[in-house]
Design a protein around this nucleic acid. Structure first.
Length: 377
DNA sequence: AAATCGTGGAG
DNA sequence: TCTCCAAGATT
């Protein structure tokens, strides 16, 4: 195909202008994703639905593409527009988000949808500043939506792009200190005719070629200006500050099973770890390792039997949970109301509850299969 | 501004 | 099994 953008190339010509070969590579090797508009359409001016771009970008924060796909389909099926999400029940949103992690994202997602629906007439702002003012949208997400959904020349910097840029320039400064320098370099390389495709091309390159380990430099379209490639040190970048090791905590979880199979659940506080999500009653999670499993934290007296234990690793600590189960007869129920603000969830509603993975593990340890959703069809 | 906030896949 | 870490945001 004939190249007609010679003037653009000349204007940007420098050792750091890698956008043309990168975009040419993207045109041929871009990933096809449910929220993405392919380059043959964006080049004709067709842009993706900002709602779908926003939803995907929030889901993709610190989360892999593979994990996001099913959730994205479920969300867009249930709530096809930002107005639909704005009027949804928050509890339904938390249920749909359960398992994806970082649950403040779901709370902010709902708030953001409500703001866009009520204050912006259902249309997302088309500038970085306007977007960043919304809950759950920070530097990266604001730039990504501006570039991808509105083709604004925004400097998008995510983990992939940090890796690509630090290798291109062999940046020795550790992250996150090097971030301002990286942003400047991205802004300098930004092709103003295709900012959205450029951002996605950089991310695809980082995800498929310029990978954290064993990068496929042989297949890379921009090796010419890559210092780390020339020096054979690509895998050394990006340099990161040393990470501290995760402390251990332990606690007890109590699975109360009624005669009809219903399980006692309750809601966690609205903020903090697993904020607003559903849990089985449990003890405090202590950092003490000598502490015996604390059965005094049970929601009511019963014949609690330890049925096993589960391990779960959070971002900043590892948890070991002793799981207790009690099978209740009808005359053993603690009054006609569940303790506190809890509720009994029957076997057919349990799989649809807003249970984070750690709680599904705990329930599974007491009642194998109880949280598994029945296969449809 | 350092700490907090989940989960699962890959090597 | 263990380590790394993924399209980061918030306080």
């Amino acid at each position: 195909m004939a190249r007609t953008e010679a003037s653009v190339t000349d204007a940007q010509a420098s050792s750091t202008d890698f956008s043309r070969p990168l975009l040419a590579w993207y045109d041929r090797h871009h990933r096809s994703l449910p929220w993405r508009t392919p380059p043959d359409e964006t080049k004709l001016g067709v842009l993706p639905d900002p709602y779908r771009v926003w939803l995907s970008e929030v889901m993709l924060q610190q989360t892999t593409v593979g994990a996001v796909k099913r959730y994205f389909e479920a969300f867009t099926d249930a709530w096809p527009t930002v107005e639909a999400l704005a009027t949804a029940e928050t509890d339904d949103v938390m249920k749909a988000w359960a398992g994806l992690g970082y649950y403040s994202r779901a709370r902010n997602l709902k708030k953001c949808a409500e703001t866009v629906a009520s204050e912006y007439d259902g249309r997302f702002p088309d500038t970085e500043a306007g977007l960043k003012a919304l809950p759950g949208i920070g530097d990266y997400t604001a730039a990504a939506i501006a570039a991808i959904a509105f083709n604004r020349p925004a400097a998008v910097v995510d983990g992939n792009i940090e890796r690509v840029i630090t290798r291109l320039h062999a940046i020795e400064a550790p992250l996150p200190q090097a971030k301002p320098e990286i942003r400047t370099l991205v802004a300098q390389a930004l092709p103003h005719d295709r900012p959205g495709d450029f951002a996605q091309a950089m991310m695809d390159l980082g995800a498929t070629i310029c990978t954290p380990r064993r990068p496929a430099c042989v297949l890379c379209p921009i090796t010419d200006g890559c210092t780390a490639r020339r020096e054979g040190t690509a895998e050394r970048f990006p340099v990161k500050a040393p990470k501290m090791e995760k402390p251990a905590r332990r606690g007890a979880a109590f699975v109360a099973v009624r005669a009809d199979g219903a399980v006692l659940l309750r809601q966690r506080p609205p903020t903090g770890l697993l904020g607003g999500m559903t849990e089985v009653p449990g003890s405090h999670w202590t950092a003490r390792q000598d502490g015996a499993t604390d059965i005094s934290a049970a929601p009511f007296p019963a014949d609690w039997r330890e049925t096993g234990s589960i391990r779960h690793v959070f971002t900043h600590f590892a948890l070991e949970l002793s799981v207790f189960r009690a099978d209740l007869h009808n005359d053993q129920l603690p009054g006609d109301q569940p303790p506190g603000d809890g509720w009994w969830s029957s076997p057919d509603t349990l799989p649809g509850e807003a249970l984070p993975t750690v709680m599904k593990k705990a329930i599974e340890a007491a009642i194998p299969g109880a949280t598994r959703k029945p296969r449809k069809g």
